[in-house]
């Protein structure tokens, strides 16, 4: 645990990791809020919020599922990510697995690295927990893998 590196808003509560062995999983088992989705989500449309990013993660339980590795897909997705946010999020939920903090220059050809990114982006699902607005502390629950980002009329 490198708590010193974890910003205050990324608070880790519980992390009960359920590992599913490598096998072809039935689709319906794939409940998911992936870190890739987390990398895109923001609370900026809330009244009074200017950036709303990144959202903190409080995890109740996560699930790890094997997903087919597509290196081309991963290397094309990487430039679209906020890398430091992904790194911190992976750290928060204990899935860092020595993923480097800095993005290397020639990641396209680094299969080991792409595999690690693949794992963090697509194989880790937050099943239950909550996302937290970094500015207001407003919590967005995640139930059954679905983040509820709905705002009340008075919050918009």
């Amino acid at each position: 645990m490198r708590l010193g590196l974890t910003p205050a808003f990324l608070v880790k509560i519980v992390s009960s990791v359920v590992l599913i062995p490598a096998r072809s999983v039935h689709k319906s088992e794939l409940v998911k809020m992936k870190l890739l989705t987390h990398n895109m989500l923001t609370s900026k449309s809330m009244k009074g919020v200017t950036v709303g990013y990144p959202l903190g993660i409080n995890v109740v339980d996560i699930k790890v599922t094997e997903v087919d590795f597509n290196p081309e897909f991963i290397s094309r997705i990487i430039p679209k990510l906020d890398w430091s946010v992904l790194w911190k999020a992976a750290d928060t939920i204990g899935q860092l697995d020595d993923l480097p903090k800095e993005l290397s220059q020639e990641y396209e050809n680094d299969n080991d690295f792409l595999k690690k990114v693949h794992h963090v982006l697509l194989e880790v699902d937050i099943v239950n927990g909550e996302l937290v607005c970094p500015e207001t502390g407003r919590k967005f629950p995640i139930n059954n893998g679905i983040p509820n980002m709905l705002l009340n009329e008075d919050e918009v």
Binding site: K27, K32, T42, K44, Y53, L150
Partner: peptide
């Protein structure tokens, strides 16, 4: 979710994406 898709709940008037 039963079909395995990535989804979140929101109103199309304020989409919670960057």
């Amino acid at each position: 979710v039963e079909s395995g898709y990535n989804v979140f709940n929101c109103n199309c008037l304020s989409v919670p994406l960057r």
